[in-house]
Amino acid sequence: MIIEKTKLAFQNMFPTPESELSVSEEVTEEAEKTETDKKAKPEKTPRLDGVIECDYAVHGYHLDVQVDAEQLLVAVNVVDQEEFFIESITGVDWIKEGQIEIVYDFSRYDFDTCRVVIRTRVDRKNPVVPTITGIYAGANWHERETHDFFGIKFDGHPHLIPLLLPEDADFHPLLKDFKA
C-alpha cells in the first residue's frame, strides 16, 4: 500500500523521537477529533514536525506531514519519487501565532489513493521557503499565486512576479491584517 510506503519514507526524514510521536498519534486514532482541536488553541500545544495519518473520511487526506522549511525539498522529493502529482499550493495566515503556514497538496493518478498534505510554518515577518519548481514544474504558478496572496518569498523561484494580482501590486490580500 502506498500509504504505508510513503509514510515510512517520511518517517525516515525525522529523527527517532518524532517518529515515535507519530506512532503514538496513530494509536490514538479514535482521538482524531480532539487532536485536531489543537488548531483552535495552538499556543498551548504547537504541533511538532512529523507525520500523522489522518482519517480520510473526516479530513479528505491520508497523510499530514509537517516539516521545517529546510526539510521541505526533501519531503517534496519523497512524494515526487512515489509519483504523486501536485494538486495545489496555498497558505494559511496564523496571525495569532505570528506564523504563516504553507500547505502543499499532492495526490495520485492511480487507484492506490493517497492524498498527502505537506505543511511548513514560517515566521510571519519574514516568510521565506525554498521553491519546489525544480521538482514540480507545475508549482510555478501555484507559488506565484501564494506569493501574491501572502507575500511568501519562494527562494529560487525563476519568475516571482504577480500572477493574479495587478503587476504593480504591493499588497497581499489573504493576510488577516489586510485592509482593502
Partner: peptide
Amino acid sequence: AGDYYQAVETARGSFGVRLVSDGTKTPYR
C-alpha cells in the same frame, strides 16, 4: 476547527476545496 479537503470531478477536472475552520461561522481559510 480543523483542516478539511474535498476533491470533486467537475467538467474541467479535479476541483478541490480546502477548508480551514476555526469553529466560527466564517471559514478561517
